[in-house]
């Protein structure tokens, strides 16, 4: 509801901005239909700009990894060594510390999530590109995947009843149990919800800040403002490169933490 109002506001601003010449920056975060397809079973199958960008990201990843890993061996050469160093960094800093011995089972998802989010984030930084991760539907889908993998992992390890039992800490008075159970189940949903919101908000924020800085020129109607606004916008774009990496890392780290919590004996 708030989101719809917010998005309607941005769309309106973008249309206004387009007339004034600053709306182009919002092309990176606003979605629009590029190929109209019929609605099947209540689901609109139209291809939007962000869907296209997701396909581009996926194709890029398949291409880069199939070409990059050709020379991977005991000692990798060329681009393969760059990919290998990233994978090893994730293995040592995310997978093994949070998932323990079972890290190999969850490595494909965690690594795919990292590289996919990173590619999506970086696609938004090239001209005429778009950031699929600035669409709440994309980040929510990723969070739902983390949720489903975490729950199935926990239930597989502890059994269906045992998994729900592990929500309640031992040595707790009986009258607190329903309240705690409720708080735990609610917390389970909210932490994955926060996961989706964080990535979405961070990715939409940097474009909005750049838009705001450039918009200042048009608000003040004075080109001298550009002396301040353009360097500031450029600095924010540089920061956005850093944010792209950090957010991809944070998402994968928290995914690993949540899956690790579901696997641990007590929550």
């Amino acid at each position: 509801m708030i989101l719809n109002t917010f998005l309607a506001f941005i769309t309106e601003e973008a249309e206004k901005g387009h007339e004034e010449g600053a709306g182009w920056i919002l092309e990176h975060v606003l979605d629009h239909v590029i190929l109209k397809l019929p609605t099947v079973l209540g689901i609109d199958l139209s291809i939007t700009f962000h869907v296209l960008m997701i396909w581009i990201a996926a194709a890029l990843l398949i291409l880069v990894f199939s070409l990059g890993t050709r020379k991977v061996g005991l000692v990798s050469k060329g681009f393969g060594s760059v990919l290998e160093s990233l994978v090893i960094f994730l293995r040592d800093d995310v997978l093994v510390p949070y998932l323990g011995d079972k890290w190999k089972r969850y490595a494909p998802y965690i690594l795919t999530a990292f590289f996919f989010i990173l590619t999506c984030n970086l696609l938004g930084l090239i001209p005429k590109g778009g950031t699929p991760t600035s669409n709440i539907n994309v980040t929510a889908t990723m969070a739902v995947l983390t949720f489903l993998i975490g729950q199935s992992a926990g239930m597989r390890k502890k059994g269906f009843v045992g998994y729900w039992k592990s929500f309640i800490p031992p040595e707790i008075p009986a009258f607190v149990v329903p309240i705690l159970f409720f708080a735990e189940v609610m917390g389970l949903f909210t932490k994955h919800f926060a996961l989706a919101i964080r990535l979405f908000a961070n990715m939409i924020a940097d474009h909005l800040i750049v838009f705001t800085f450039l918009g200042l020129i048009f608000i003040f109607k004075n080109f001298l403002v550009a002396l301040f606004a353009v360097p500031a916008a450029a600095a924010i774009e540089l920061l956005a490169v850093l944010i792209a990496f950090i957010q991809a890392y944070i998402f994968t780290m928290l995914s690993a933490v949540f899956i690790g919590i579901a696997l641990s004996e007590e929550h």
């Binding site: 609610m186 917390g187 926060a194």
Partner: peptide, 11 residues
């Protein structure tokens, strides 16, 4: 501890 702040708000 990374998302403690956001977790409270989002909850």
């Amino acid at each position: 501890y990374f998302d403690l702040g956001l977790r409270l708000t989002v909850a």
